[in-house]
Amino acid sequence: MKKLLLATALVGFGGVALAQDVVRLGTEGAYPPYNFINDAGEVDGFERKFGDELCKRAALTCEWTTNEWDSIIPNLQSGNYDVIIAGMSITDEREEIVDFTQAYIPPASSAYLALSADADLMSGAVAAQTSTIQAAFVAENGMQVVEYATPEETVAAVKNGEAVAVLADKDYLKPIAAESNGELVLLAKEESIGGGVGMAFRDSDDAVREKFDAAITSMKEDGTLNAMILEYFGPEAKTW
């Protein structure tokens, strides 16, 4: 796996020599299995593999870069990268500012992770990452929200009792629950918020967006996207 990634990185650099325009993909790098920085210091995860495949199909040279979640849209606007591919749910609020491709992950449910299956969500604070749809959801539904800057801290808050549960994408929480040796469990209650995960572009970048959109369509049609979703998010994941 590591070698393979090194190879893709080299392809990225090779493209520079051709003086072709590079499309810069911006991600967060802290949201496994969507995207994370692996132990070799490279961007890794579902979106890495998916993004590289899209670039190949669209015949574009791509380069990865990471940015803190809470300034990921302003930095797209000011041109520090050209695409956001960071597990970002398509919402009306964001749609006003940026343009999304079609969704590449179906509307996923958000789940609660807690210390026990009968945790009472109203008995304490519910953790969520700052400026996510989940944080807004918790606040709007009468629960007390406690916000952290990174997804990592939200889970830590549940473990040390600061929050009764964390609300986040189920695909992010599932491996954490599975590997916690029963310390953490997913609640039966799930929420469906947001409209699927898409790539975000500046309003003015229609040409590039259409290329990516076409590539996503082709990946959906030949089933590679579904295979990738199953590979990263497990056999029960929703597919197209």
């Binding site: 809470d70 606007q77 700052t130 606040a139 929200v145 406690v146 916000e147 952290y148």
Partner: peptide, 24 residues
């Protein structure tokens, strides 16, 4: 230190608006 119930200091709200309006 996390903000509970969206109660935070001046920078917390400034950050909130910068995030919502996408305009720092």
């Amino acid at each position: 230190f996390p903000a509970f119930g969206q109660m935070g200091d001046a920078l917390y709200y400034a950050n909130y608006f910068a995030d919502k309006t996408f305009n720092p």
